[in-house]
């Protein structure tokens, strides 16, 4: 039993570095996708949706990847604190932004947006 646990632990120590690095890379690529969305979408409200990819899945994947790479519990607790902060504050900031834009009288684009309406800001 103890040997099995030791085997699992050894395997985990080998596996976690490539896995963590891969998750970091995947998360940062998702951040890039969110940025491309921020550049492409037509108005402020739709850009908020693209930015929330960065805030949720991108940040979560990068932070979990760094947790797998981390050398000790202290680093994991710090990463967990960052994760909790981001998950609590990012929707609040998004809502404040949307609410401020709405109060300022910026009208959202409603209805189907085809490719002909896309501006030439494509990255």
């Amino acid at each position: 039993m103890a040997e099995l646990l030791a085997n699992i632990h050894g395997l985990w120590e080998v596996v976690r570095f490539p896995l963590g690095a891969f998750m970091c890379l995947a998360g940062s690529l998702l951040c890039l996708v969110g940025t491309v969305g921020v550049l492409r979408f037509p108005d402020i409200y739709t850009r908020l949706h693209a930015a929330s990819i960065t805030d949720t899945s991108g940040a979560a994947l990068v932070l979990i990847g760094m947790m797998l790479l981390s050398p000790g519990w202290l680093v994991i607790s710090k990463l967990f604190a960052i994760c909790v902060f981001l998950f609590l504050t990012s929707p609040t900031a998004s809502h404040a932004l949307a609410n401020a834009a709405h109060t300022a009288g910026i009208q959202p684009v409603i209805g189907r947006v085809g490719s002909s309406d896309a501006e030439g800001e494509d990255a």
Partner: peptide
């Protein structure tokens, strides 16, 4: 203005991730 604030906010989130990495 709000597009710029959105960009700055998202920039800040990415800065946090970049600092950690």
């Amino acid at each position: 203005l709000y597009d710029r604030i959105l960009a700055v906010n998202s920039f800040g989130t990415k800065t946090v991730l970049a600092l950690g990495l």
